[in-house]
Measured scan of single mutants.
Amino acid sequence: NKEKKVFISLVGSRGLGCSISSGPIQKPGIFISHVKPGSLSAEVGLEIGDQIVEVNGVDFSNLDHKEAVNVLKSSRSLTISIVAAAGRE
C-alpha cells in the first residue's frame, strides 16, 4: 500500500475534524475512524480506514490511542503520513 503525506495547518478554532481509534490486536496501529464532512481532514483527503503511520516525525506504529491524540494536539501544523485504506482490508 502506498504511503502518502498530507499537511494540515490548524487555523483559528478549526480542529482537525477527524477521530482516531486503535486497530485490533492482529492489526495494531492508529486508524481514522471518523471524518467530519467539510473539515480540514476531509479537505486534505483523509478517509475512514486510513492508517496514520507518522505525525511530525513521530512513529505511530507503537503508540496507544492516548499518546496518538496527544501528538495530534501538540502542534498547530501537522505533517501526517498515512497508508490509505489500510484499515479496510
Rank of each mutant, 00 (worst) to 15 (best):
T79L: 10
S41C: 09
L40C: 13
S13L: 06
R88E: 14
F31T: 03
K27R: 12
S41N: 00
S19N: 10
G23E: 06
I48E: 13
V55G: 01
G49M: 02
A85W: 07
V44G: 06
A86G: 11
L40R: 09
L78C: 04
I32Q: 00
I48Y: 06
V35A: 00
G45Q: 01
I52Y: 00
D50S: 03
V55C: 13
N62K: 13
K5T: 11
P28N: 09
A86L: 09
V35R: 00
G87I: 08
H34D: 14
C18M: 15
K4D: 06
K66G: 13
P24H: 11
A42Y: 10
G23S: 08
A85I: 07
R88N: 14
G15N: 15
D59R: 14
I25R: 11
H65N: 06
K4T: 07
L40V: 13
G15C: 11
S22D: 08
I48C: 12
S19Y: 08
P24V: 08
H65Y: 06
Q51A: 03
G29F: 01
E3F: 15
G49D: 06
D50I: 01
G23H: 06
R76E: 13
I82L: 15
K36T: 15
G29N: 03
I32E: 01
E89M: 11
G87T: 12
R14Y: 05
L78M: 10
E43L: 06
L16Q: 01
G17R: 02
V55E: 00
S77P: 05
I82M: 08
I80Q: 03
I48H: 09
D59A: 09
S13F: 05
P28S: 08
A85P: 13
K4R: 09
F60G: 02
A86Y: 10
K4W: 04
P24A: 09
N62I: 08
S39Q: 02
E43G: 10
E89A: 11
V83G: 08
V83R: 15
E3W: 06
G49Q: 00
T79N: 14
F60S: 03
V6S: 11
I25C: 08
Q51K: 12
V44T: 06
G15F: 05
K66I: 10
L40W: 08
L78T: 03
K36I: 12
A84Q: 15
D64Y: 11
K2D: 00
V35S: 00
G23I: 05
I32M: 03
I20K: 00
F31D: 02
N62W: 07
G87N: 15
N62L: 10
R88Y: 11
S33D: 11
R14P: 07
A84W: 03
G17N: 03
L40M: 11
P28D: 07
K27V: 05
A86C: 15
Q51S: 02
F7A: 05
G49W: 01
V44K: 11
H34R: 10
L16R: 00
L46R: 00
N62C: 10
I20C: 02
V83N: 10
V6H: 15
A86N: 14
Q51P: 01
T79M: 13
C18D: 02
L16I: 09
L16Y: 02
S77Q: 14
V6A: 03
C18V: 11
P28R: 10
I32S: 02
G49Y: 02
K2L: 07
S74A: 10
E43F: 04
E89K: 14
S33H: 07
A84L: 06
I80P: 03
K2T: 09
T79D: 14
A42H: 13
G15T: 13
H34N: 13
K2E: 02
D59M: 07
H34S: 12
S41I: 06
I48P: 14
A84V: 09
E43T: 08
K36S: 14
G17I: 02
F31I: 03
A86I: 08
I48F: 06
F31R: 03
I32Y: 02
G15Y: 07
I25S: 13
G23C: 06
T79R: 12
Q51V: 02
L16N: 00
K66L: 11
K66E: 15
R88T: 13
S41A: 15
E3V: 15
S22E: 14
V35C: 02
V44A: 15
S21M: 12
L72W: 03
K2F: 09
K2R: 08
D50L: 00
I80L: 15
C18F: 11
V83T: 07
V83C: 09
R76G: 11
F60V: 06
P28K: 12
K4E: 04
G17M: 01
I25Q: 11
I20S: 02
S77F: 09
K5N: 07
G23P: 04
S21L: 10
I32N: 03
S41P: 03
G38H: 10
